[in-house]
Design a protein around this nucleic acid. Sequence first.
DNA 1: ACCTGAACACCGTTCAAGT
DNA 2: ACCTGAACACCGTTCAAGT
Lengths: 232, 232
Amino acid sequence: MDTNEPEDDPVKEAPVPRRRAQGLGRDIIIDACLKLAGGSDADALSFRKIGKAIGADPTALYRHFADKDELLLALADRVIAVGMEGYVPGPRWEESLRDLMLRTRASFLRYPQVATLAALRVTRQKGELEFIEAMLAALELAGFERREAALVYRACGDFMLAWTGFSAGLVLLGEQSAQDDNAWVRSYQDVSEQQYPLAVSSVALMAGVQDEENYRFALDLLLGGIAARLGN
Amino acid sequence: MDTNEPEDDPVKEAPVPRRRAQGLGRDIIIDACLKLAGGSDADALSFRKIGKAIGADPTALYRHFADKDELLLALADRVIAVGMEGYVPGPRWEESLRDLMLRTRASFLRYPQVATLAALRVTRQKGELEFIEAMLAALELAGFERREAALVYRACGDFMLAWTGFSAGLVLLGEQSAQDDNAWVRSYQDVSEQQYPLAVSSVALMAGVQDEENYRFALDLLLGGIAARLGN
DNA sequence: ACCTGAACACCGTTCAAGT
DNA sequence: ACCTGAACACCGTTCAAGT
């Protein structure tokens, strides 16, 4: 618990803002980073660029975070926490699960640099705790007992995180290197139709699927599988 | 180019291996890269390290690949192709889908550096074509018509690729930065049980789930959802 | 106590030069 | 025709030095 940890000392040593006029602090840095992220610059979160953004030497960051990894975890947790704002569990567990797995993804995709770098990490902080608690509550409502709920949570959580990291990578790739759908279709014009009849005849259909609708489609399949599992 | 070979050869200008004694060529480079990948070195695939491995200057690679991206796509396609070796479609479509989504993942995870860097790319080459053709054949066998099959293919393919990239990232993170399960459990000892009762009481269960079983569990949920979709 | 700035060991990539 | 090696513009990180 690195965020707002309750201090043991009774007197509560004051923050001593003496040198805090232009001083930093974790939250100021996190705010600046999230302002930097979101653009199309794939490595907007380098220490040198962050340093420029906060008007301090890049290495000043080491005064507040042990290393880049710790900074990224803090960013990821804040992104999750922001995504949880305004969440209210509904009466139907499927809707709650779906809501949680869409809103957290959406929040990450607003900061794709954070998503690519930290989506595979467990932050073990406030935002993640709220997300987990809400997911488990929905699964309990669905009728899963504890062990089963833990399994399903892991499947859903990692499904969402993995796919979101994947999507963020696509966003940051951008137009680069002919990743676009047209290039996919075009490159299949030289492919032997005898050898790969299904692939060739379906390439336009496959390429036409956008990532966001694809995620929602897969998510609904997954939720359908969970519901089916409850059935028996 | 005068060679030692008989001249004026009218038929099929020979490959002329004159300067090919230590010469390179794409396949030699790809073989060397796959030998380099697989270890625990997260950036084993830097141009400098590849250059050392093939006994050539790092920049010699630019003679055979336009840039690193093109090299990675070639590597990824080879990894997919290797994964497809020995695949035979079975009579049951669910089993074929499952097989394809396990063997391709397994092949990628043998070369985690390739998986993290290229799992989100469409290679548009031989290995990927074989994979797509086999997947679509299984879905046709299941009874999906073309448009539906394309949708389900995209969901399954990206599910597998996204999660595999995620898993490869975990592998390369390794023991680093306390990503391990024990750290997760330990860090929850300070968490308020009143505020997050479900999360705290389930952390050991959640942390105990290994990535590979988690993937298989989610995969079965997904396949279950696909089967349910066919039902109506 | 906090920040600076040079330095270190790395990246991918370019380009004039070698043979 | 193919390869080399210095150079460029970047990384994250360390550490002695400033105030």
